[in-house]
Design a protein around this nucleic acid. Structure first.
Lengths: 227, 227
DNA sequence: ATAAGTTTGTGTAGAAAATACACTAACCGT
DNA sequence: ACGGTTAGTGTATTTTCTACACAAACTTAT
């Protein structure tokens, strides 16, 4: 890492960084992954994982790298969210920071921490700790974007295992929108979008009727609504 | 300008630039403002006006500055669109470029050209010239975003004069969506959003019934649809 | 074997929103 | 006063959204 960071010491020359807002649904809640900052002046506050881009990678590649370093995931949904240009990342040098937005399925995932940070943790978007920079605003913006996407795209696949029941899918929607949905209406709507296909297999897991497993027909981003 | 550009000569250190995709509606068409590039290797191609940010301004300030330099406008709708990180702006240095998206009312506007460019012109988004970088993709993305905004916000105010008739408003919508709308349904819908207020004044301009002039109740961005 | 418990899966009626469609009102110029 | 032109309005139909309750399928305990 140090090897590829530039010897950019002129404080007027902007440093280019990439941050990743990684979202997941866990325990019925929408959560975001944050790291505890070690360096002053934000030491002790929480922030998105991220870092300065390398000379040989694009912004997107840098975002994927951060994601892989922290979660081990590669095949997830990632999109650019916003670029901050007036942030003084550490109050001494000008910084430009592009925030990416990722959706991961966190079941069975063990977080990889590094000595760079004092901690790494999932936080419910409704109960955030004190955040460094203006990351709280970014999270609100990201949640808004996610809710929009939910309505008219298939990006939720990234939050779920390969196959899932309609009830599981509905729970993910409910966590993200933070409201209860009607079971029959949800199914009618989601199936009418033609994004799902039944697998023919069943999920059995308790003393009750088993549930049909579905999968997304494609994991390429699809926009449903046409203008 | 030269004064404030950095003596950043290490080609691995990224240069931070801001571009502005300025849209307007003119002659019933949605148009975008482009400048003709002078410098190699893109000489002769068209691109968004833009430039390297100064050390004392935020990204947004830089975008406003570009906008004012090219059009003289200040009080318009401006929002961030996308940041490009893998562009090699002139194939010799790494560049990060954030594109902003502006909506202006171009009636009676004379474009201010500078010696930096070989030309400046409005182009219909449907008949674009050969573009430098991947700006064609950015325009498509911007148009998409604009169409979305149209459905659920009041940002069109930025394309229109302070007061306007419903027919003029409808024409702007038709130009942007590039389809005809039903007059009665359009009026019903747009008035139900409660974003407009009648001024009580009339526009008279031909041998026919005069039209009521409306204005937007507010020019602050309003999002109509709630999730 | 059957009854108790639990989750899956399904239809319909009413309300709200979107669409399709045509004529009168108001003005100017002659 | 009439011809030409754009502004302004209502209603019926279709589509989409919402609210709502019970039978089906399975496991476990008896």
């Amino acid at each position: 890492m140090t090897r590829t960071e530039f010897a950019n010491l002129d404080p007027r020359i902007p440093v280019v960084a990439v941050d990743v807002a990684i979202f997941t649904v866990r325990g019925g809640e929408l959560k975001v992954l944050l790291v505890k900052v070690k360096k002053r002046p934000y030491a002790g506050l929480w922030a998105f994982p991220g870092g300065i881009i390398r000379s040989d990678e694009s912004l997107e590649q840098a975002a994927y790298r951060e994601l892989a370093e922290k979660t081990g995931w590669r095949n997830v949904y990632l999109e650019q969210l916003y670029t901050f240009g007036d942030v003084e990342r550490d109050r001494t040098r000008r910084a430009i920071s592009t925030v990416y937005f990722a959706l991961v399925n966190a079941e069975g995932l063990t977080l990889k921490t590094t000595e760079k940070y004092a901690g790494i943790e999932w936080f419910p978007v409704k109960k955030l700790p004190r955040l460094a920079y203006d990351h709280a605003g970014v999270i609100r913006y990201g949640v808004k974007r996610l809710r929009w996407k939910l309505e008219y795209s298939n990006v939720v696949w990234s939050l779920l295992p390969k196959t899932f029941t309609l009830t599981e899918l509905q729970s993910a929607y409910e966590a993200i929108l933070s409201k209860k949905l009607d079971k029959r209406n949800f199914r009618k709507k989601i199936l009418s979008l033609k994004l799902l296909a039944p697998t023919g297999k069943m999920k059995r897991w308790g003393a009750h009727r088993p549930a049909e497993l579905y999968r997304f027909k494609t994991r390429k981003p699809v926009i449903v609504k046409v203008l």
